[in-house]
């Protein structure tokens, strides 16, 4: 399967949930979907054995935007499909994909620690990267986190 056909398949698979689909670069497909549709979309890719989950990237769009964006990157050879999910800053929450892809747990734990996004239904929420006495409610990869003094934030 060449990268073009792979992308074609992916866009067909994801069509029903896609709010917006773009190709920012060659061999890339970005699909914006609602958090509620995430599981169905991931399952569709999985059932078609379209590639594997490369990673989950969290992006803080900033305090003004008031949203986080999560990017689920699926790789299939040269082709890359990205599911973009947005969730509000005041109550960030996405469903867990661990039921479909068990190995996502390490990525999800990273998202929980670094951004404070609650991942509903993830099997393990133990600290993975941050120190044991890292203060609760401080999420280092958020844009409003001040680099110099982690303990002063609340």
């Amino acid at each position: 399967m060449s990268a073009e056909t792979a992308l074609q398949t992916a866009s067909e698979l994801l069509e029903q949930w896609a709010k917006e689909a773009t190709t920012p670069e060659p061999f890339r497909l970005d699909v914006v979907i609602e958090p509620d549709d995430l599981l169905a979309a991931v399952k569709a890719l999985r059932d078609a054995s379209w590639g594997y989950l490369s990673t989950i990237t969290g992006v803080d769009l900033g305090v003004e935007a008031g949203e986080f964006e999560l990017l689920y990157h699926f790789s299939n050879g040269a082709a890359l499909a990205t599911l973009r999910v947005r969730t509000p800053r005041d109550n960030p929450s996405v469903p867990s994909v661990c039921g479909i892809i068990p190995t996502a747990t390490l990525y999800e734990r990273e998202i929980i620690e670094m951004f404070g996004i609650s991942v509903e239904g993830t099997p393990n929420t133990d600290r993975l990267f941050l120190p044991d006495d890292w203060p609760d409610g401080v999420y280092p990869l958020r844009k409003d986190y001040i680099y110099d003094d982690p303990t002063a934030q609340a």
């Binding site: 133990d126 600290r127 993975l128 990267f129 941050l130 120190p131 280092p140 990869l141 986190y145 680099y147």
Partner: peptide
Amino acid sequence: RLGYVHRGIEK
């Protein structure tokens, strides 16, 4: 358990 040499590179 990871993170013993976490250096905050992404930040």
